[in-house]
């Protein structure tokens, strides 16, 4: 107990249990999270740089990363646009059913991805609920990149809304009144006063939705069609490599994706640091 306390330089406290709780937490964290992720990186580092580069620039891998990244980007943009409207409406306006809508925003967190995947496919397949009307028009949603974008929009939906809501709630109405008394019309007040305040949380929500979408698997594979080079996402390619017992290939793609996640995490922290400096809040 004193050993743990000495290592981390704990300040003295009368409350007992520091050694055992921190010891347990660190052991559990190491066994479940840190060691397995270290194993993944170790497995990848068994490759020479040339071998790794060959996997990373493999045509199919590049195509899969492009599909994942491109579809995620479009989905995140859709979510940023509609998420801003939804968050604004839920905070500022009063209308029947508002609380139900507010609660349902979290559905993508609660609904298993496989369930979302088959439901969206049942809607947008060529014989599906909506697909049967789109198919004669030549619009193919399921089994195309559009389908992937729809699934990724679903799973990323709560992020923008939930990051914006508390910030909109905190906007001081007096600032808007001040803008109005200084002669700004409503459009000017929104463009020059409100939107700049909402930019940091909007960006944060956008990156969160993007990060979540790039790694998403369950909801996409049902609706995507999974055609190599066309509608094959990067996480699926990892699964395929694993099924071929190509552990190193799978690890290499996974490491690229981990690096992308890390960059997103960095981006979020930079946005928040910038927001704190500029606006004094996150």
């Amino acid at each position: 107990m004193n050993a743990v306390a000495a290592i981390v330089g704990r300040r003295p406290s009368v409350i007992p249990g520091f050694g055992i709780t921190l010891g347990f937490a660190l052991t559990y964290l190491s066994l479940i999270v840190l060691i397995p992720i270290a194993a993944l990186i170790l497995r990848t580092s068994s490759l020479t740089w040339e071998q790794f580069w060959a996997i990373a620039t493999n045509e199919r891998v590049v195509a899969a990363l492009r599909v994942s990244f491109g579809a995620s980007l479009i989905a995140a943009i859709i979510n940023a646009f509609f998420g801003l409207i939804v968050a604004w409406v839920l905070v500022r306006y009063r209308f029947p059913g508002r609380r139900v809508l507010d609660a349902i925003v979290d559905l993508p967190f609660a609904l298993p991805t496989a369930v979302a995947g088959i439901a969206l496919t049942a809607i947008f397949a060529p014989t599906g609920w909506v697909g049967q009307f789109l198919d004669p028009l030549g619009i193919k949603v399921a089994y195309s990149v559009t389908g992937i974008v729809i699934a990724l929009t679903f799973i990323g939906l709560p992020f923008v809304v939930r990051t914006l809501q508390p910030v909109i709630e905190e906007i001081d109405r007096e600032v808007e009144e001040a803008a109005a008394t200084l002669g700004a019309n409503r459009r000017q007040a929104i463009a020059r006063v409100i939107l700049p305040t909402l930019l940091p949380p909007l960006l944060t929500g956008f990156v969160l939705a993007l990060a979540r979408a790039i790694g998403e698997y369950g909801s996409v594979i049902f609706i995507a069609g999974n055609l190599p080079y066309v509608t094959e996402i990067a996480p699926l390619l990892i699964v395929i490599r694993l099924e071929e017992f190509d552990y190193v290939g799978a690890s290499a793609i996974a490491s690229i994706m981990l690096a992308i996640s890390f960059l997103m995490f960095l981006a979020i922290n930079l946005i928040q640091a910038w927001a704190r400096r500029r606006f004094g809040h996150v």
Partner: peptide, 21 residues
């Protein structure tokens, strides 16, 4: 930060790491 780490990892990778081990 480390406790939050699993949320930023793709579900597929969350399975892969145990296959590698």
């Amino acid at each position: 930060t480390l406790i939050d780490l699993p949320f930023s990892v793709s579900p597929v990778i969350s399975g892969l790491i145990y296959v590698i081990l």
